[in-house]
Design a protein around this nucleic acid. Sequence first.
RNA 1: GCCGGGAUGGCGGAAUAGGCAGACGCGCGGGACUUAAAAUCCCGUUCUAGAAAUAGAGUGAGGGUUCGAUUCCCUCUCCCGGCACCA
Length: 810
Amino acid sequence: MSVEYNPKEFEAKWQERWFKDLFYESKDFAKGKEKYYLLVEFPYPSGDSMHMGHTRNYCMMDTVARLRRMKDQNVLFPIGWDAFGLPTENYAIKVGRPPQEITKENIDTFRRQLHSLGLSFDWSREIDTSDPKYYKWTQWIFLKLLEKGLAYKAEQPINWCPKCKVGCANEEVIDGRHERCGTLVEKRNINQWMLKITEYADKLDKDLDLTDYWESVKTRQREWIGKKTWYDIEYKIEGTDEKILVSTTRPDTQFGSTFVVIAPEHEIVEKLKKYMSPEILEEVERYQEESKKKSELDRISQLKEKSGVNTGLFCKNSITNKTLPIYIADFVLTTVGTGMVVGVPAHDKRDFEFAQKYKLPIIRVIEGEDGNREEINSVEKVCEGEGTVFNSEFLDGLSTQDARVKVGEYIKEKGIGDVVVRYHLRDWVFSRQRYWGEPIPVVHCDKCGTVPLPEEELPLELPKVESYEPTDTGESPLANITQWVNTKCPKCGGPAKRETDTMPNWAGSSWYFLRYTDPKNSDKLGDAKKMEYWLPVDHYEGGAEHVTLHLLYSRFWHKFLYDIGVVPTKEPYKKRTIHGNVLGEDGQKMSKSLGNVINPDEIIEKYGADVVRGYMMFMGPYEGDVLWSTETINGLKRFVSKYYGFLLSAWERKDKSSPKVTKAVLKLANKVEEGILNFKFNTTISALMEFYNEFHKEIFSKEDLEKLVIISAPIFPHLSEEIWEKTGHDYSVHMQSWPQIDKEHLKEEEVEIPVQINGKVRGRLKVNVDISEDEIREKVLSEKAFSEYLDSGNIKRLIYVPGRIVNIVV
RNA sequence: GCCGGGAUGGCGGAAUAGGCAGACGCGCGGGACUUAAAAUCCCGUUCUAGAAAUAGAGUGAGGGUUCGAUUCCCUCUCCCGGCACCA
């Protein structure tokens, strides 16, 4: 019998029914079930449609959620909208419509699209970061941070477009120019709200040990935090009373130092200017202006030629007593160390390039391999590794590690420096001069200074404005709404002005996983018992682009909330994995300009949700980037149609299964279960195909067929539900339990193993799995097929790997 | 540049506590069905030589460890992502 597979007939029907029944609503405190919190990164509802990337990640994770429910876990699989942000605001400016409206439309589109894939999200917990009921608590967290001294204001450089009179995001600066108007962008210091994430640097580093993140994720977090031991050493500037505090992580190389470099924007440069000759002063100031225009990336890149200015000043290395020239160069950043570094060209590639350009001496003080003390005269020879120190007076003969300790002791003893732990991590710039974000809930009072809004006044809602363009002064559009800005000081009742900066997009996404546990609570960020029950997130699935910043920011907020007793766990996420991206058919990122974008709506319409889901899983490994292929999805369509027809026709001719068939069904269940739980989605689909290829003509029992439908349910939820109903079962297949699998039962008694002679496969033997090495030796030797290869020599060695392979060395 | 990831047939990929390289799918070639096409089904499909049996080569490049390396170690090349105001 052939059965037409027509998903249009039933997919929408089941989606509606599942939604109406709130089928996937997770119950807090479900008795007798283990909880499992599966979190996917919530989407930014931008532009016109969800991406293929969202489609793939959510389809894969939905399969996990469905399987875990069938394995009797109480699964929390929520979704929401990361709704504030720059792209929507820019679009609002362009079309002259309120971002609120645009966002609402985008969310409606995304919701419909997610729905049309049959994803089993718990829609009763949907959240939206731009909803005042949500951002009330984002603002509340900010007030708590302020109260605990973790929010402060500081001068920070921003990208400034002098033509548009607006601060711009890095994203909007292309080749140093503002993408909208093409004007060269400058650095400009403005007073910004900052969050003291550095206070948590050590905890953020150490507590990674409490998690099961993928190792690559942990490494990236650690590298970003960048805990390092620095040695700060005071050098006197010759002919003056000034001192500079240089810093290095390699004090073992001090005797190889030949110059000192200061970052051009360093405040000490202003102090030193009075000692410079007029010609040099002019050059220094020109250089300072130039480097303002460069991006940080350009400054530190080794690809670009080093530049710098000789100040004509000298200092004395207080360890070696040697006189060193002082340069100003922008490959040094104020944010690294003390912003003043010692140049050791023999043992640092960047220092080497700089020394070559300015003809500075190069002195080797660390031996290479086998005591190599050869002169360093090319970049390739620069020796950045560890070794034995020489030509270094009191450090001679020490290992570089020991030498560092010794210098540390020396500078402390002599009172000329200190050993300091520093982090690459910098404090979080929390202000945006933008409209579409959470207003920062403080007022500025002439008498009382900066005053936080009282908690009762939250949420501080974003007022409606006429224009979303920043003001002429570069302040946020909010600054133009005088009736909103002018307010009373909560402390003294006098006139005060509201803060007009808003929060960055990162704010709302730093705690959304907490809100899912209790999304409608209006008295608290979340109920303590509910958070206790659901936290931590068991598995947080997301992209590589969020593994540094977002992950750090949300861990920081979580740790802070833990410290003030709001949340029950030290860490928010137990496990973090990284998915790959969906690229276009041409291997490029999907983008409008390349015309390689595939719209999920169109393919769902054309193939149906189950085919799309199957294809999303089959395209390639979870963690790898995958290429869209219209040809391959046709293959999936072919398979799903065949598979659907097979299940229905097998039901019509059901009878007794052979033991082989029954075993195969259980083996498949086991394979699918392990595949899904270990994110091997592509081979899980292969397993279904292999099963079909081998068994679709067999006779199955009623019980075995029911199992097959149940096994298919997490992967193809619609067609499984349809078949379940068509074969006379009660709603719903998704409420059935996953088959019990006794792994002992799945073992094969006989295996076919390859026989290698000198590493080449020369044949195969069918043997009992428990065969001993002696027995197999006898078997191989008695087999004629192998004798021609064995005649020529004596058997030197026979290796038998039980159940896998025999290798004979002759 | 720094940090993270990656490279396997014509294509997407499979196989790593070191054990048959190329599962599964696409594409392609051949055949069946059809007046014909589409759809469907069957057979073949890493490369080289050979009618075939078979032989040799082969997992980005080079080296090493091992009875045995896609898997482990060293050196290198290229590609993707992140680099703090895109999210």
